[in-house]
Amino acid sequence: MNKDILLCGVGGQGTVLASKLIAASAMAMGETVHSAETIGMAQRGGSVTSHVRIGAEGAPLIPKGEAAVMLAFEPAEAVRNLSYMKEDGVVIVNRIPVKPVTDSDYDGGVMIDYLKSKCKNLIVVDAEELCRPFGSSKFFNVAILGVAVGSGSTGLDRDKVLDEIERTVPERFLEANRQAFLTGIQLGGNYGVK
């Protein structure tokens, strides 16, 4: 399997855990994986990306136009990274914007409309709605991963991902994470990409 997956969002949203789960699950399926994270100053509220390259022998960063799947934790960040996507790539985006202190005028709805005009395969999810049963938007990273896996676009086996969630997540958060993931799977299944 050759698959480039791009995760993007704002520092603190939990993209790193989601990308580690993808990488670990792919490795458990026997794939070679490379990935790259944003670490350091930009983590403090800046734009962050994780590039996960499954089956690739090359560089850790995805070239433009080659990502098959995007997990966007924030609408403007989806637009910012859209040029990395294949024309028929699957974009899964959170509808809820994160407004920077310096730019309160920014409108997430405009970004969603733009994505609708550009993406052949767009799945818009609402992090607040999706995470309401679990009491915290902290579980959105695992929920959006569930949507991606449930949609069939990642090529990842849901049980392998569940195994990795169990291995990685601390005991007291495990059940909520498992439920968030399964809720995501169900939602993603409605879209049935491929």
């Binding site: 509220g45 403007a76 910012r80």
Partner: peptide, 13 residues
């Protein structure tokens, strides 16, 4: 994406 709407800047804070 040359016609993308103006994106918010996100300097680290």
């Amino acid at each position: 994406v040359t016609d993308a709407p103006k994106l918010p800047m996100r300097p680290p804070v």
